[in-house]
Simulated assay, not measured.
Amino acid sequence: MMLVFGHTGQVARELAALDPKAIFLGRDRADLTDPEACAAAIRAARPRAVINAAAYTAVDRAETDPDTAHLVNAEAPAAMARACADLGIPFLQISTDYVFDGAGDQPRSEDAPTGPLGVYGATKLAGEQGVAAAGGTWAILRTSWVFSAHGANFVKTMLRLGAERDRLTVVADQIGGPTPAADIAAACLRMISVMRDRPDTTGGIYHFAGAPDTSWAGFAREIMAQAGLGADIAEIPTADYPTPATRPLNSRLDCSRIARDFGIKRPDWRIGLAKVLEQLKDKA
């Protein structure tokens, strides 16, 4: 039996679809602002593995709520990882491209220097460090630009706005890999399986993002095209769309390590987008 922290989030929902026998702990059963309670939940369940798919993901709100963000994104994962190390079971933490400063135009490797631009990225990086310090069998999966048919995300926002307006302004100087949550979930399960079989030869930090890299504007155009919406996408620089938290301009991730260690290749996000649009059509 596997234990997953998270219940309604995008990746957690996809994990539930792939592994319905797993135990999923939502906020009502696991308060991530109480790290020791999370560790206690692991010790009580004694699962075969743990995935943390929960996080404080309100990037802008984190700027004015750093203490809560740190509890959820840094202290809770570290406590979970320590409990897993004590039990001798694999622990997988989902992280983010926001641990980088977004400089340059080349894909970042797992060993590239970090430099988060805001509270969210800083707390996620602190979580990574806490997980690594716990020892045991652990892995961190950094991903980017997550989308699915669930929750709030860029695809659903673009679909709503594209149906209401003839023209949308979308940032064009942030570049990254849109990543279907379903593919992240599948990657997580593959990683956990291999880590259980080969705990001494796998683990560490890995990158996983959809291909090909594109801008938010390019992503928006593909959404409009696949959805049959006629809204024109006008490109703007990040400077014209100010937000409380600074976004990295370069979110390209080098995903060669996860291919080498786990045989997991970058998914084509355009195929994932088509599946998400079909799911949303079925829901409607």
Rank of each mutant, 00 (worst) to 15 (best):
T8Q: 10
R13A: 14
R13V: 09
G26C: 10
E36C: 05
A41V: 05
A44K: 15
R46Y: 00
P47N: 01
I51D: 03
A54I: 10
E63G: 00
L71Q: 13
A74P: 09
P77L: 00
P77M: 01
P77Q: 05
A78H: 13
A79R: 15
R82M: 09
A83R: 13
C84Y: 03
L87T: 05
P90R: 03
L92P: 01
D97L: 06
F100I: 01
P116Q: 05
G118C: 15
V119L: 02
A126G: 03
E128T: 04
V131W: 06
A132K: 14
W138L: 09
R142N: 07
S144V: 10
N153F: 14
F154G: 01
L159M: 04
D173G: 11
P180Q: 05
P180K: 11
D183K: 13
A187T: 12
S193N: 11
D197S: 11
D197T: 07
P199E: 07
D200Q: 14
G204R: 09
Y206M: 09
A211C: 10
T214D: 08
E222L: 13
M224P: 02
A234M: 12
P237V: 04
D240R: 14
C255S: 09
R257N: 08
R260A: 13
R266V: 10
E278H: 05
